[in-house]
Amino acid sequence: MTTPVMSQTYETESGAVVEIRVPDLDLLHSVGLTERTRILEQYVREELGRILGITPDLVDTTGRPMSCLGIGSIAGIELQYRMEGKLGVGLNLQRLLLANSARELVDCLAGQFGPEAADHPRGTPVPA
């Protein structure tokens, strides 16, 4: 059985074509937390934008819970599957769906790379 290859681009409802840039894993392991968070926030915006059909700059990462962004169980599973596959990390689906904002997801991912990763089990958000 083969695993389907997922597109690295998507088209928004307005017709714009957006490229999803999966971060370089070696880079994520080598940069500091601030830079790692910036890189992962862009990636999360792109993945959420793909699901929502909007450009990444329109994705609210701080002001709305994931459920209010339109991320329900099906979209959450898809997001979990894509991110785990592309980044090689574990994400807890329940935490993803109950997150107070996409920023919690970014923080969770950022904590799984770099020297801080040993202090945070896979899929566990990093305290702000």
Rank of each mutant, 00 (worst) to 15 (best):
T12Q: 08
G15E: 09
G15I: 13
G15L: 10
V17Y: 09
V17L: 11
V18F: 06
E19L: 06
I20C: 06
R21F: 15
R21P: 06
V22A: 14
V22K: 14
V22T: 13
L25S: 13
L25N: 12
L27Y: 15
H29N: 15
S30E: 09
V31I: 12
G32D: 11
L33S: 13
T34L: 14
E35I: 10
R36K: 14
R38C: 10
R38E: 14
I39N: 03
I39Q: 03
L40W: 05
L40I: 09
E41W: 01
E41T: 02
E41P: 01
Q42M: 02
Q42N: 11
Y43W: 09
Y43T: 04
Y43Q: 02
V44E: 01
V44Y: 02
E46A: 03
E46D: 08
E46T: 01
L48P: 00
L48A: 02
R50W: 01
R50M: 04
R50Q: 09
R50L: 01
I51R: 06
L52E: 04
L52S: 08
G53I: 09
G53L: 08
I54C: 09
T55W: 06
P56K: 01
P56T: 07
D57E: 13
L58N: 14
V59N: 03
D60Y: 09
T61L: 03
T61I: 12
T62F: 07
G63T: 14
R64T: 12
R64H: 10
P65G: 07
M66P: 03
M66E: 00
S67M: 13
C68F: 11
C68P: 05
L69R: 05
L69C: 09
I71T: 05
S73R: 08
S73Q: 10
S73T: 14
I74D: 12
A75R: 11
I77M: 08
E78A: 07
E78L: 04
E78K: 00
E78P: 02
L79S: 05
Q80Y: 14
Q80W: 14
Y81R: 15
R82M: 07
M83S: 00
E84V: 11
E84M: 09
G85L: 04
G85V: 07
K86I: 00
L87K: 05
L87T: 02
